[in-house]
């Protein structure tokens, strides 16, 4: 589904990603862990199509398409979804209007009929229940006055509504208490299927207790320095990131 080869990216002339290689297949969950500044969020931003980052080398092939040639909205329409680390507040745009517009454009892109109002409302209700988000929040403006946890939950709700093929969760666990973390993880697990894949970007191992990854990759200084199975996350938690640094620099 996703094949990243020798990806180099920089911002304001400073190189952040220094040759990432990653293969992801349908149905898989990949965790990308790493210390602050290792390039985790840059990788997420480059995948989602943030224009501030310059890709200087390498390629990303997504379902046979050159992802880097697509605009951010076209990536979303092709099924790439980024759950933001810091979702923005947009006063004056209701969540419902926002989702209706997004689904409308995604369907138009795929050459599908517009969704019927009744079907949209049913879907809204069903997904609200699935990710356990308060109905009152959904009726408000996008993230306006939401707590940190409510914003993260809203990201997962949007993910449920847009039914992406590749979801990238950028530090979705940060700032969540354990109850909120369980609800968010539960939502993600319910949305998992054989056809879609998930990338979980995190600093800590805790989320991985609830969303079990198939593979764990450790990012350090813009490169994946170690890959393994879910046990790698536990080892990392126990020994701390210093052990990676020592290993790499040794």
């Amino acid at each position: 589904m996703l094949s990243i080869k020798n990806l180099h990216a920089s911002i304001d002339g400073k190189e952040i990603l220094k040759g990432i290689n990653l293969e992801i297949k349908e149905g898989e969950v990949h965790a990308i862990m790493g210390p602050n500044g290792s390039g985790k969020s840059t990788l997420a931003a480059v995948l989602a199509g943030r224009s501030e980052y310059d890709v200087t080398e390498g390629e990303i092939i997504y379902n046979g398409k050159n992802l880097l040639e697509l605009e951010a909205e076209d990536r979303a329409r092709e099924g790439v979804f980024l759950a933001f680390q810091y979702p923005v507040e947009i006063p004056g745009v209701s969540n419902i209007n926002f989702l209706k517009t997004a689904i409308g454009e995604i369907r138009a892109y795929k050459g599908l009929e517009p969704i019927k109002a009744k079907d949209f409302l049913m879907m809204l209700k069903e997904k609200q229940e699935l990710v356990e988000i308060d109905r009152a929040l959904v009726r408000r403006s996008i993230n306006e006055g939401f707590s940190g946890g409510e914003k993260k939950r809203n990201e997962i709700f949007q993910m449920a509504m847009l039914e992406p093929k590749l979801s990238i969760l950028d530090e979705t666990d940060s700032g969540l208490d354990i109850d909120a973390l369980r609800i968010v993880a539960n939502g993600v697990n319910k949305l998992k299927s054989e056809e879609n894949a998930t990338i979980i970007i995190t600093h800590y191992q805790r989320l991985l207790d609830y969303i079990i990854p198939d593979f764990v990759h450790i990012l350090h200084n813009g490169k994946i320095v170690k890959s393994g199975l879910k046990e790698l996350a536990l080892e990392l938690e126990e020994k701390g990131y210093d052990f990676i640094k020592e290993e790499v620099e040794a």
Binding site: S51, E73, A76, L82, F84, I90, F98
Partner: peptide, 12 residues
């Protein structure tokens, strides 16, 4: 904000 909306499939 523009990027957030585009990242959900809404054109520029």
């Amino acid at each position: 904000k523009i990027f957030y909306l585009r990242a959900r499939g809404i054109g520029l």
